[in-house]
Design a protein around this nucleic acid. Structure first.
Lengths: 299, 299
DNA sequence: GGGGGCCGATAAGGAGGGCTTATGGCGGAC
DNA sequence: GTCCGCCATAAGCCCTCCTTATCGGCCCCC
């Protein structure tokens, strides 16, 4: 008697497999299996032809998929119909973001949000992970993008991005080969770091990896102070230092600085969307859905 | 995220009160209160103006009520769209009924069922309560109308009718006054009974009530043997016996026989719709819904 | 004007649906 | 032949939603 079954069934129909639908819906495969079985029993018809390679919709399944889409669309319409009565105090959506987010991530999510919730105005605030957590707790932020899982039951979190980090090195550096550079080869260079207080768990992870590969972290950086790109580039091109960076760097590298992958990808920078667990805002939920890497808006 | 909230909200809208909706939905009043509160939080708008006399829809509530009706209608349409693929083996619905059901109950429910499930063919079988239970257990019946609650977790049951019984007495009988007849005045007459085995709990209840009022039950009747109305009438008009009967007797009484209410309504004959708890048949569910005295099809 | 009755809100406890992990059978790919 | 990915099933747990119990507010009626 509910729309959950329709959503699951549509995920199956679009992915062509129960396992795929389970991944997309972020639930386990048996949950999907049980749900669609219950749906089939309710309507009294087989909806799927199972095989060991996946599933195909039966004739009845094709019909129901169309119907289910219509029902869900009508449901969304119903909710948005009363949305215009909603208090306007809620239409500001404040999002905290760290430096160096994959280009395109926020613009596409915001664009999708503008379509479904045209009255929501998004505000972006560049903040460190620690500052975002504080702001979320104080109600000064509706959504954060953190460099570590909040580890706090007051918050829900979803992994949004995983970026294997490479390093920025001087173009004249000889440490790398065609496969990239080995982390231990970086011993002797300074790491262009950030302050531990800005994101302790992530800082500690990087430090632990560096130490285990015999690399000493460079000089400490005061909290809240970031090295702007030009400063990093200057230090790197001098051959004295290196910096970590994802492959998809948002700006062009100057001559004299090269990005090189790390052999074995020992460092993966993760970004978690984080929001108060008790939030019921629908525009927030929609934005989160659009950030979901397993539920691409393109689908 | 589901239709349950819509159903609850519509029940509120139609009844104009949370308590009324709760009765109609057969849940407690706090359940309704919580559900609609959750719905309001989701849409971010007050849907109801509460008062101590009931509730009224707000402007947003009126809009949502219309939308919710549309969504539910679309949902029903989706389920019935695949219904035509359902196996045809399921289209026979066998219903067991006792003697002396309120006139109109089954015809109106069957008519409503024919509208929503035109492919379902209903079959009525006159059976005693005990025989119906056996048939339900054997899969020979989809629905029973019993004179007692099945008291068995294999079955679900819903109270369908409550009939305060009066008595059929000879027109020349002097025992009654304007308020009716007192049960203890019937001592000395024979009760035109039915066999205990046909419906033990109900038989025992009647017997206990009779005995506590000093009335001796009359001669036993063999199981499965019912006295046809004409025989009852003959025995009653002779002045030797009485029979219990509801006010809404299905056939006209002959001259010489009068129906008289019992002072204090010491006997209330209840009829329970009873079906296998594991049944998922949608046509059965629809028929049960149409039998629901708290959810009149007229609404 | 005070008490009873009905309204809806809230708190606290319990049952069940839906999730999880663990495991098994099956078929295709290498 | 072995391995891997598919889906189904089993058993256990958690969270949602229900329950009962209780409260404050308002109306009505005496």
């Amino acid at each position: 008697m509910d729309l959950r079954e329709f959503r699951v069934f549509l995920a199956i129909a679009e992915r062509g497999s129960l396992s795929g639908a389970a991944r997309r819906l972020r639930v386990s495969q048996p949950a999907v299996s049980q749900t669609v079985a219950a749906l089939e029993q309710q309507v009294g018809v087989e909806l799927l032809e199972r095989s060991s390679t996946g599933v195909r919709l039966t004739e009845a399944g094709v019909v129901l998929a169309g119907e289910a889409r219509a029902v869900l669309a009508r449901y969304e319409q119903a909710l948005s119909a009363v949305g215009r009565f909603a208090l306007s105090a809620d239409t500001r959506l404040r999002v905290g973001v760290p430096l160096e987010l994959p280009p395109g991530l926020l613009p596409s999510a915001f664009a999708a949000l503008a379509g479904s919730h045209p009255r929501t105005r998004t505000e972006v605030r560049h903040l460190t992970s620690a500052a975002q957590l504080d702001a979320l707790r104080d109600g000064d932020l509706e959504l954060g993008l953190l460099r570590s899982h909040p580890m706090d039951s007051d918050f829900d979190a979803m992994l949004v991005v995983e970026e294997p980090l490479g390093v920025l090195l001087s173009a004249s550096d000889q440490r790398s080969d065609s496969a990239g550079v080995r982390l231990e080869k970086l011993a002797g260079l300074d790491w262009l770091a950030f302050a531990r207080a800005d994101s302790p768990p992530w800082f500690d992870e990087v430090n632990a990896v560096l130490r285990s590969h015999g690399v000493d972290p460079g000089p400490a950086v005061p909290p809240g102070q970031f090295l702007i790109a030009e400063v990093k580039f200057a230090a790197v091109s001098s051959g004295q230092a290196f910096a970590f960076a994802p492959r998809d760097w948002s700006q062009p590298l100057p001559a004299g600085v090269l990005w090189t992958p790390l052999v074995g990808s020992p460092l993966i920078r993760r970004t978690w969307a984080t929001w108060p667990a008790d939030s019921r805002r629908r525009d927030l939920a929609a934005l989160i859905a659009h950030l979901d890497p397993l539920d691409p808006p393109a689908a």
